[in-house]
Amino acid sequence: MERLLAELALMQGLLVAFVLSGLIGWERESRNLSAGLRTHILVGVSAALFIVLGDNLVTNFAKQDDQVRFDMIGILGAVVSGVSFLGAGTIFSSQRGEGAKGLTTAASLLAVAAVGMTCGLHLYVLATGATLLYLVTLGPLGLLMDAKKSSEPTKRE
């Protein structure tokens, strides 16, 4: 029973990552952008799970054998690398000279991974604050940028 309660306590980080990543995913989904609600939730919760698993490895096995080494920084780096690879798949260049597309989507995937890792470390206030900053960046600041782009004269080729 004690083990079950301990695992349920670990689920807190995943549940908070689910909610916070979902908020960012919902913002992207509501604007009909390529990576939406489900993708952002999957990335955020997965990042949280990798951190929780890494932390458990350190806690449960590091004391058993001095030869076993654990590197939480390495786990953070692996999550960032994996999500960056995923994000790179969302970026493509326009052949009409309009520049790269999908950069914000890639950045939002990296952002939810960071939120997920923060939740995995049970730093919920920090994760919530970062989520709010990301939402302001994607929402109101995004609308300002869209308005600016629509008011600029179009370039002739």
Rank of each mutant, 00 (worst) to 15 (best):
E2T: 14
L4V: 12
L4T: 14
A6I: 09
L10C: 06
Q12E: 15
V16A: 12
A17N: 11
F18I: 07
F18D: 07
L20Y: 13
G22W: 10
L23V: 11
E27P: 02
E29Y: 02
S30D: 00
R31V: 01
N32S: 07
L33E: 10
L33T: 10
A35W: 05
L37K: 01
L37C: 01
T39Q: 02
T39S: 03
G44D: 03
G44W: 00
A48F: 11
L49Q: 07
L49V: 07
V52L: 08
L53V: 12
L53G: 02
G54T: 02
N56H: 01
N56Q: 09
V58S: 01
T59R: 05
F61E: 01
A62W: 14
A62C: 02
A62M: 12
K63P: 03
Q64S: 08
D65T: 01
Q67V: 00
V68M: 04
F70H: 00
F70P: 00
F70Y: 06
D71S: 02
M72Y: 05
M72W: 03
M72E: 04
M72H: 03
I73M: 11
G74Y: 06
I75E: 02
L76D: 12
L76E: 10
V79N: 05
S81Y: 06
G82A: 05
S84I: 12
F85E: 10
L86C: 11
A88W: 13
I91F: 07
I91N: 03
F92C: 12
S93Y: 13
Q95R: 06
R96P: 00
G99C: 07
G99Q: 10
A100G: 01
G102Y: 00
L103E: 02
T105Q: 05
A106G: 06
S108N: 09
L110Y: 11
A111S: 15
V112C: 07
A114Y: 10
A114R: 11
G116E: 07
G116V: 09
M117D: 09
T118M: 08
C119Y: 05
H122G: 00
L123V: 02
V125A: 13
L126K: 11
L126W: 13
T128R: 12
T128D: 05
G129Q: 05
A130R: 05
A130C: 10
T131M: 10
L132F: 15
L132Y: 06
L133W: 07
L133D: 06
L133R: 09
Y134E: 14
T137E: 08
T137H: 14
L138S: 15
G142R: 12
L143S: 06
L144K: 10
L144P: 02
M145Q: 15
M145S: 15
M145K: 13
D146K: 14
A147C: 12
A147W: 15
A147T: 03
K148G: 08
K149V: 03
K149W: 00
S151F: 14
E152Y: 07
E152F: 05
P153M: 11
K155L: 15
